[in-house]
Amino acid sequence: MFVKIIGKLTLLLYALLIAGPLYVVGVSIFKQGNGLFADPLGWPKPWTLENVTAIFGEQPMGRYFLNSAGVTLATVALELLLSSLIAYAIVRLGGRSGPALFALFAAGLIVPSQVSMLPIYALAHKLGFSDQLGGLVLVSAAMLMPVSVFMLTGFMRLIGRDILEAASTDGAGEWTMYWRMAVPLAAPSLAATATFLFVIVWNDLLMPMLLINGKSKLTLPLAILQFRGEYVTNYPVLLTGVVMTALPMTLLFMFLQRFFVAGLAAGSVKG
């Protein structure tokens, strides 16, 4: 009984630690410039929507939203195609080749993306990917490949080599088995991985900051930095932009979180 009470109190404390900053951010949207510092925890006096109008009045947020949506959709689609093919190949290879290939991609999880910033920038500049949304898509997909391969390989292993071997015996080619068997059977894993990737790519700031320079090509997280002044920053406007940027992915994750949890669980299964 005592242990249960301690556990509930710990969860309550953790919930308060999460809810506190969210509350401050939520009410700050409707406060005037000085209201946040005068009374951070109080209700807006008066309530105002000038922060929302300032967001759309000072910056072309619609353009930035389309940039983020395009980059996110293209990156996730390319990532799912390539990583599912790699995961299928790992399962089909078996023996020593499959685990060795899986270990190669899993090793990529160890290296933080910040460590490779300079090589990425130099290579992107050399290939002409700098300040190109298409280049941002390719670089983002490459950086996330270890994560998606790790998750999808766990799901592909659940399909079972016996099913694929039976189809191969009946004369099905590798592409047919991949497209007509592996992909439909791994649909929950693809949804889980897509949910995970959507959140990461949409909220990514590092890669756009590293590769994008033109103002018309900014993504939403990078565009939010435009509201930060050199000496003075209007934090209610800045926090409004943060909420508007995070809201689409928050709603998506709420609806698809069961696929996300399933993807994490299956990605940890050992073959």
Rank of each mutant, 00 (worst) to 15 (best):
V199K: 05
S216I: 05
N213M: 04
G171M: 10
A167M: 13
M207Y: 07
L185G: 04
K217C: 02
D162V: 14
A194V: 05
I159V: 15
L239P: 08
F196C: 09
M156E: 01
L225M: 13
M145A: 11
L239M: 13
F227V: 00
I224H: 00
Y231T: 07
A142G: 15
M181C: 09
M156H: 10
S216Q: 09
M151V: 09
F198Q: 04
M244T: 01
S148A: 15
M145F: 13
A166L: 12
W202Q: 04
T240N: 01
P188F: 13
L190V: 15
M156S: 10
M209V: 05
T193A: 11
M207C: 03
M209Y: 06
P208L: 03
D162L: 05
A186P: 12
L238K: 03
I200W: 14
T245R: 03
P184E: 12
Q226I: 00
V147G: 04
L218Q: 07
T240E: 02
A172L: 14
D204G: 00
T219Q: 08
S148D: 07
D162A: 14
L210M: 09
L152G: 01
L197H: 09
P208H: 08
R180Q: 14
M181L: 15
L144Y: 15
V199T: 15
M209A: 12
A192C: 11
E174C: 05
